[in-house]
């Protein structure tokens, strides 16, 4: 009975201290991240009621986009290599083959109309330092929706987690532990953004899934003023990206979770034996 009381006092002190230095301290130091908004509610509805005409979209894209963007799946190869591209634009312009996979439709429409605004990066660009891609707000909503419909029509059937990551993040971020180097050379990115986009190999560990979900959805929520854009990923793509970060940064997770149970069971068994043995020995002592 006395031992039980001691145990209760011990648990109370250790438990209270633990609560103070872990859950409570983290709650104070890191405010709860805002829930991800995959509808991008702050953006106006360009006109989702219009049914875009992919054929007309194709014409518009070929007239307006392919001078800078490649669309490799449709035979539009990059006009320059990555380093030259990066030097010309600040960042390597994305290949558009997977635009229909990656981005929320209404976000993409808003992006075409005004990229810096859709990305929440208006604080980073100005008249003297314009965003590399011009706004296409002179197009009619119908034309913009035609372009969106075109990207939708050429989207890849399925992207692997790695492909999602490379297309959504890989122009700026490296992932050394997966052998991925950013397409835009670090020095060029640093001078364009004002800071170096970090290697993401261990971000699943340093930031955690919960934080990443909110951060990728809109970086400004958690890091005001950052040069990282709101990329406009759909929920599905974002989950794929985070899954890839976990597969790279916490590769042994499944092995860990599977093994743990057996080790714990082993010590449950050992405890049983040890208790029986102790009783046997102490039978003569008490």
């Amino acid at each position: 009975m006395r031992e039980f009381k001691i145990l209760v006092v011990l648990f109370a002190i250790v438990g209270f201290t633990y609560y103070g230095i872990e859950p409570y301290a983290h709650h104070i130091m890191h405010p709860e991240p805002v829930e991800a908004d995959f509808n991008f509610k702050d953006l106006k509805d360009i006109d989702s009621s219009l049914k875009g005409d992919a054929q007309n979209g194709k014409t518009l894209v070929e007239a307006n986009c392919v001078a800078c963007h490649s669309i490799e799946s449709q035979g539009h190869m990059p006009l320059m290599d990555d380093a030259t591209n990066a030097a010309s634009y600040g960042v390597v312009p994305p290949d558009l083959s997977t635009a229909g996979n990656l981005y929320n439709k209404n976000y993409l429409a808003n992006f075409i109309a005004n990229p810096a605004k859709a990305m929440h990066l208006e604080h980073k660009y100005s008249e003297t330092k314009p965003f590399p891609m011009p706004s296409y707000n002179w197009m009619t909503p119908k034309e913009i929706m035609d372009i969106v419909a075109y990207f939708e029509s050429i989207k890849a059937k399925e992207l692997t987690h790695k492909e999602s990551f490379e297309n959504a993040c890989g122009r700026c971020h490296s992932m050394a532990y997966a052998g991925i180097s950013a397409k835009t050379p670090g020095k060029v990115a640093t001078s364009h953004f004002g800071s170096t986009p970090p290697d993401l190999s261990q971000y699943i560990k340093s930031r955690g899934e919960h934080y990443l979900h909110s951060f990728i959805n809109d970086p400004q929520n958690l890091l005001k003023g950052t040069a990282m854009p709101r990329v406009g990923l759909t929920q599905e793509t974002q989950e794929d990206v985070i899954a890839f970060m976990e597969e790279t940064g916490d590769r042994k997770k499944d092995e860990r979770n599977a093994l743990g149970i057996w080790v714990i069971l082993f010590f449950v068994l050992m405890s049983g034996l040890a208790i029986a043995w102790k009783r046997e020995i102490w039978k003569d002592l008490h």
Partner: peptide, 29 residues
């Protein structure tokens, strides 16, 4: 030995499933 074995159940629970208190996320930067 009895106490040690019982303690190891708790210890390995921490090792496998609850280790952030000992491996601060910030240190993965």
């Amino acid at each position: 030995i009895m106490v040690i074995n019982i303690f190891m159940i708790f210890f390995f629970y921490l090792v496998f499933y609850h280790y952030n208190f000992a491996m601060d996320p910030i240190n993965f930067d």
